[in-house]
Simulated assay, not measured.
Amino acid sequence: MCVIEVAEDGLVLTTLRTTEEMRQLDEIGHPNLPKPNARMLEIAEKIVALQSGGFDPPISPIAMKMRRALGRKAA
């Protein structure tokens, strides 16, 4: 994982995890989780349904800087 940021007149790539910290999914395995409570699952489904819909997030400051640095108009 990494993040790319605009710094002065260039781009900086910062790794968020080192190679040694990364694991394949088959190395990690799946946790032994209990079955969800039926009532809690019903409530969760209602919350998801209420929150579902269009999503138009604002452009992050980092994305705006990158677009400017790359000469693209921030739309």
Rank of each mutant, 00 (worst) to 15 (best):
A74L: 04
V3E: 09
E42M: 03
E42D: 03
Q24Y: 01
V12N: 10
P31F: 10
G54Q: 10
I4A: 11
A38G: 11
M64S: 12
L11S: 03
P57F: 01
K35F: 05
M40E: 08
M1L: 08
P31Y: 10
T15S: 05
E5Y: 06
G53Y: 01
E45R: 06
M64A: 12
I43T: 06
V48F: 01
I4R: 04
V12L: 10
P34N: 11
I47C: 03
E5A: 04
I43K: 02
K46Y: 00
A7I: 15
P58R: 06
R39C: 00
L13G: 02
T19Q: 10
G29N: 00
T19I: 12
N32Q: 08
V12H: 13
M1Y: 00
D26R: 02
N32M: 10
I28L: 03
L41I: 00
T19V: 15
R23I: 05
R67V: 08
Q24P: 00
Q51N: 01
T18H: 12
T15W: 08
C2L: 05
P31G: 03
R72Q: 05
P57Q: 08
E45M: 11
A74K: 00
M64Y: 15
L70F: 03
R17Y: 06
K65P: 00
E42Q: 04
R67N: 11
S60E: 15
G10S: 14
